[in-house]
Write a protein that binds this DNA or RNA. Structure first.
Lengths: 330, 330
DNA sequence: TTGTATGCGTTATCAA
DNA sequence: TTGATAACGCATACAA
């Protein structure tokens, strides 16, 4: 392994000069040339251990999430990874697979590795690590969930408002009975989406007898089951608050030969590009996943550069794509 | 930051003893107790920088892949991450997004970070980094592709044989005309699957006039297009060599109201659990993704422990699930 | 079995 | 502007 000592000897300068050169300091032009030359001929590579030992920086950031197998998380990771790379940073992945009691250990794992920052997907205020998060001394960014601690930024989307807007518009199109496929109200995202739905219902004067809620478990299968249950009850307007379950619902409808926008009116949450393939005219609330990744990374580096800035809650807008999968009754 | 010096002082032993204790050496029971106690009261955490500076180990392994957004890669990553964690290792992710000319830089990136091992998904012998890979001094494991270099292990599945077996069985069921949806023959996996198909054709005496190949681009959309093209030509037996395109094909069939196993005979490659949801009786070649992850990690640690062991090509078996999506004509 | 001392590659402090 | 040298936290060779 080539060290700066060897580079220094080769260039006939001191290690200090080499170190300074490497860190962008100015020195005598002639020496800079000699060092540059020496680095090339020796193929010197910096040693991140030694660097980190002094600077306490790893040039890596940790990502903690529940599960990396959803479209949302894999798209987001991919986006973040791409952005990080251009900063010469790497990402350290960690998932807790529904084991909330393991979250603390996961965070320790990442912290032990001295990541320079931490990105948490859908962390919840109810987590037992609540206390911990406040005391972490590196930048922490919460994605998709608001964690309103002094040192934590949150990047979120306006789920509640989007759901409300979507449902309002559907009702305005003449739909006064509706089936909703949602998930147990254990996360803020889940609550926001369903509450937004309720907001619209009450604003438009629909009550309990006008809608039916089916609670699935995020799986395609439960979406399928939900569609079956609701449609069997005679409902013809279905809203699904989650992409994966929406897929299951669509599956059921296709199997039954039901035509969207005619036999059934259908809308759901999804992601950019996903539904475009088969359902270009599907009515969806589209989450700006790529933008979330980009904003997250940008914010992370702002924080790394300036750790004292005040925390922020950055809210991005979902797009509403109004296709032809909702029948116009009016 | 608590150091072993402070632990040593607290426990009234020397730093050497603490270091040895930390590394599992035996020492006087009494001292071990004192050190253990001191570590707890001071909440000592090891410093991976300092450790790495001496040992040149990062307790991390690098993963290089094309794209992390396929079911295959995200499942595999998840599995690897889970296994790694139990070894107290973390993973460093890197994707090159079809930019083959960037692969070398990506590998350098990982190597600069001193990963203790490298996992490469679907690396190809044609890559310009061919030379590099041989000279890497850490364990390298190639997943899903055979990279027969002296220091590289390969974990693969028997794609060619599986395709052949599947097609043979389909032909034996009475199907003598067939549509195949494949991808451009640019990767060994792609070639294996299609060649296995051809193997069966020639063994069973089918020739050019008996089958039709549609080349897609891995996208669901192209699978949809492929199914449309082939079925419009009157073919009723379809084999898809790729899961994503299979989804697209199924989509087309459902839209057309075609019944699997009756109107259309259908088989494809997929993954454990994926098709079970909607198509429990679908005939598939099922790739052992989880096992691949586990075997990869195990092999990695064998290599890390004993870097001199000879390289191996470990071939896992695809399972063939014979459902009822193939009509029995015999 | 334990303690001491040196070095890993880098940065930063202090003099020159 | 540069050079020499002391840290950073740990592992280990050597001595005791």
């Amino acid at each position: 392994m080539v060290t700066i000592q060897e580079v220094a000897k080769e260039a006939q300068v001191s290690v200090g000069s080499v170190s300074r050169y490497l860190n962008g300091h100015k020195l005598k032009e002639q020496n800079m040339q000699k060092i540059k030359q020496a680095i090339e001929t020796l193929d010197y590579k910096e040693n991140l251990f030694a660097k980190g030992l002094k600077s306490n920086q790893t040039l890596s950031i940790g990502i903690l999430m529940n599960n990396m197998q959803s479209v949302f998380s894999s798209t987001l990771i991919a986006q973040i990874e791409e952005e990080m790379e251009s900063h010469n940073y790497s990402i350290l992945l960690n998932s807790y697979r529904n084991k909330i009691d393991k979250v603390a250990a996961k965070i320790d794992f990442l912290l032990d590795r001295k990541v320079d920052g931490l990105i948490i997907f859908e962390g919840e205020p109810e987590w037992p690590v609540y206390e911990r998060l406040q005391t972490i001394e590196i930048p922490v960014i919460s994605v998709n969930t608001t964690l309103d601690y002094p040192h934590v930024d949150s990047i979120i989307v306006n789920n509640r408002q989007s759901a409300k807007n979507m449902i309002s518009k559907i009702i305005d199109s003449g739909h006064d009975h509706m089936g909703v496929i949602s998930v147990p109200q254990k996360s803020s995202v889940a609550r926001d989406r369903l509450n937004g739905t309720f907001d619209a219902f009450s604003e438009k004067g629909l009550d309990d007898s006008d809608y039916q809620i089916f609670y699935g478990d995020y799986s395609q299968k439960s979406g399928y089951q939900g569609a079956k249950t609701l449609i069997d009850q005679g409902l013809t307007t279905i809203f699904v608050t989650n992409y994966n379950m929406a897929l299951g619902s669509l599956q059921y409808m296709f199997e039954k030969g039901l035509k969207l926008g005619e036999d059934i009116s259908f809308a759901c949450f999804d992601y950019p590009g996903v539904s475009d393939i088969f359902y270009p005219r599907l009515t969806t609330v589209r989450q700006p996943v790529h933008k979330m990744g980009t904003v997250t990374v940008n914010r992370m580096f702002e924080r790394i550069k300036n750790p004292t800035i005040k925390n922020e809650i950055i809210q991005l807008e979902n797009e509403i794509h109004w296709g032809n999968s909702i029948k116009e009754w009016k």
